[in-house]
């Protein structure tokens, strides 16, 4: 018998996070797929369209700002949607369930993974934007404050939705398809790949229901001058509404996670 205390949940969450990061960055195909893909698309799209808006902002700069939003959806939603399904399939979750690790430590580890991968993704996309499309970083503290809360709300809501959608995939292979469909579809509908002015109204309406549009719009408000506000569907940055929608998805995502999370693929049998 031992009287030693059980390790703390926070400490275990951190050590899960370290293990998650090691595994993520050592898995080259996964890194390329979820991590450098948005940067690749950014370079492609920005090179195809080279016109400028009134006031001198180029289409490439708008893409760069929007793509920060799309990029962290990849490192949160896509990464966890596939990653948790993979953990379920390869026995990670089954093994963890047999240890005294609390479930919360597993999710904390995923949070650490998503936070680090998303920050790295933002740095990568901004670096590409600055070098290729002359994006300039804002200097006002207020814009960085907006960046911080849009970033945090986006990765929390998209991470929770990713964990929830992983339970709908029957296997890790189908998880890639199940997560990519809404991810790619919503990028079109949210004006990431195609400028908002080109999109039909119904698409804008559908896109406005989901977090991708609000994340991208939030980052546009950070990295583009206020003169670009008029290009938005509502003619303004709508920061209050952005906080409301992203916050709402955090709550919905949490409920979905609690309702759908499974430790194994096998149903009772």
């Amino acid at each position: 018998m031992t009287t030693a205390a059980l390790p703390s949940t926070a400490g275990l969450g951190l050590s899960r996070g370290v293990a998650e990061l090691k595994q993520f960055f050592r898995q080259k195909d996964h890194v390329i797929f979820t991590f450098t893909f948005p940067a690749f698309i950014l370079v492609l799209l920005g090179s195809i369209f080279d016109d400028a808006y009134p006031g001198g902002v180029t289409v490439g700069q708008v893409f760069a700002a929007s793509m920060v939003g799309a990029g962290i959806v990849a490192t949160s939603f896509l990464n966890l949607g596939i990653g948790v399904a993979l953990d379920r399939e390869d026995g990670t979750l089954k093994r963890l369930r047999g240890t005294p690790m609390p479930a919360a430590a597993y999710f904390l580890g995923k949070v650490v993974l998503v936070a680090v991968a998303s920050l790295a993704e933002v740095v990568l996309l901004l670096a590409v934007g600055m070098v290729v499309f002359d994006v300039t970083l804002p200097t006002e503290a207020a814009r960085w404050f907006t960046f911080a809360w849009v970033f945090v709300l986006s990765i929390i809501s998209c991470s929770l939705l990713g964990i929830a959608i992983s339970s709908f995939a029957k296997s890790a292979q189908s998880a890639a398809a199940v997560t990519n469909l809404p991810y790619v579809g919503l990028q079109f509908m949210s004006g990431i790949y195609i400028p908002i002015s080109e999109l039909p109204d119904w698409m804008l309406t559908v896109g406005a229901v989901f977090p991708v549009k609000w994340a991208a719009q939030g980052f546009r408000s950070v990295f583009l001058p206020d003169s670009m506000m008029v290009q938005e569907a509502a003619g303004s940055w709508e920061l209050g509404k952005t906080a409301l929608v992203l916050g709402g998805w955090c709550a919905i995502g949490l409920v979905l996670c609690l309702l759908t999370f499974r430790w194994t693929n096998r149903r009772a049998g």
Binding site: L12, S15, K22, R26, D90, G91, K94, M101
Partner: peptide, 25 residues
């Protein structure tokens, strides 16, 4: 476990150390 292919990218020592951290003693 009977069948598991988890932690493929970790080393043997990293895996064992990591799991050791879950236990009090």
């Amino acid at each position: 476990l009977q069948t598991a292919n988890d932690a493929a990218e970790l080393t043997v020592r990293e895996s064992v150390r990591h799991y050791a951290a879950y236990y009090p003693n």
